[in-house]
Design a protein around this nucleic acid. Sequence first.
RNA 1: GGCGUUAUAGCUCAGUUGGUUAGAGCGAACGACUCAUAAUCGUUAGGUCGGUGGUUCAAGUCCACCUAACGCCA
Length: 569
Amino acid sequence: MARILITSAIPYINGIKHLGNLVGSQLPADLYARYMRARGHEVMFICATDEHGTPAELAAKKAGKPVDEFCAEMHEVQAKIGAGFGLSFDHFGRSSSPQNHKLTQYFAGRLADEGLIEEVSEQQVYSHADGRFLPDRYIEGTCPNCGYDKARGDQCENCTKQLDPTDLIEPRSAISGSTDLEVRDTKHLYLKQSQLKDRLSEWIDTKTDWPVLTTSIAKKWLHDGDGLQDRGITRDLDWGVPVKRGDDDWPGMEGKVFYVWFDAPIEYIAATKEWADKTGGDWESWWRTDKGADDVRYVQFMGKDNVPFHTLSFPATIMGSNAPWKLVDYIKSFNYLNYDGGQFSTSQGRGIFQDQALEILPADYWRWWLLSHAPENSDSEFTWENFQAGVNKDLADVLGNFVSRVTKFCRSKFSEAVPNGGAFGETEKALIDDLTTKIRAYESYMHDMEVRKAANELRGIWVAGNEYLQAEAPWTVFKTDPDKAAGQIRLALNLIRVYAVLSAPFIPEASAKMLSGMNTLDTSWPDDVEAALTALPAGHSFTVPEVLFAKITDEQREDWAERFAGTRD
RNA sequence: GGCGUUAUAGCUCAGUUGGUUAGAGCGAACGACUCAUAAUCGUUAGGUCGGUGGUUCAAGUCCACCUAACGCCA
């Protein structure tokens, strides 16, 4: 039995995410977590909401709420949606938690002790009316070059000239419109990532088994241009983790917070501590290599936009701390999912949001389609036609109908109990060999996180059951040799349990229904397929389950395609 | 403007280090079956692998240029 630590990139707090966010990290992470648990491994599956930073403040302001209240509410909303999709987190934390404050301050202190933090003086525009500093794009004014009156502090959109905030004529706050501004000196902490460049580079070079997408992005950041740059880790904001050096105050840093990119990944650790504080579990045995984590395999899931933070920034924090914290062992990254020929767009309301998806169909429909079309090698495409075809064919026709035809046949010809009689013959042996080959391939793909290939293999396993029935035709056999037909159906009924166990990582709700229909709690993995196909003995009662997957009609498809084409109401 | 990614059957995608007649699923046509959610199973048709040129005994697979789509950056 292995110990596996799994984290999914933590979603930002400022709104409900679309399906592209789901398929790029949380969903495949959940698939992997469920599979590893099913194989008997000890799993710690962690996710959280990423709550700090300016966008959270602005979203709260727009909602007319204090930012902490807003974040607490949005966290609940996201937690509920995650549960709706069956995401089986051991803990879904919050980056604003006290645990994360403490750990973030601890890491900053460690980095400072190691000489990896530098204080840098900068000039920033301060707004008296807003009571805060304004990052470049929060200042507007007239462009000195072309006279455009809505130029931003970093660039004029009209003439594309790059600007400095102090260049603007009649500058004003983009938040309040106030012109009561002044340029102030401010000090910030920088993490000297450049000093860690060689260690990071060496470390990345050892990761020869990582997907090319992951390592190529990391190497690009390491080596392009002047190489890995030092980076500011503090901001002049109210909302965030107050800057402290461990438990001590940090002279000159009063009133400042850590920049969101610095505290967010530390939340992976802090969320595990949140879990421990709640359950009494041992969080350090997952994260401290001196306290039991040396045998942990740590796997991260994320979209490609998050790769630089997880291959460089977060490892820089861990390595730079010079303390025995667990580094990631494997990073599985995903490309983007496009929507009907374009991008999903949060701002334009284009595409399907997670809450809407759950309103129109059960989670398993989405889980199956999204995972079987996961954008692993390149950006992939969601179309309603494809979604309808995939779900109807795979789930309703191949799997759902298999369950239906077997249980109903048994009920009508025998009873609602596994029938007695018959024995495995040549065809059954052949089926068992075929299934064994396919299940071993499925295990291999799941182990390697080859999501699409695993889905394809699973589908093949479902098809094998229909092939068997079609070839053996128990409905014909029954007329002349009911005993033989009984043996065939007993095998088919057992196949339903095996399918439920194998399919659970992809479609947990339907699997639970199948097991419940078969009236069994036996979720043992089919290591030995022949034995697994006799788990339900003759005489074991069952009930014909309700329809597992209703088909998506053309009317529904057209209706939804129109509804999600643009602007969210 | 700079950098990068992608371009394979009607659709969504596989194609390992270049090597026999380029694969899968869906869709289509035809056939079988009737237990089942008009479901299932089988057979067949469909591609000059975006274009041009090059390297090689051999290129979808490497190189150059072109075109198109997309992404990132200042």
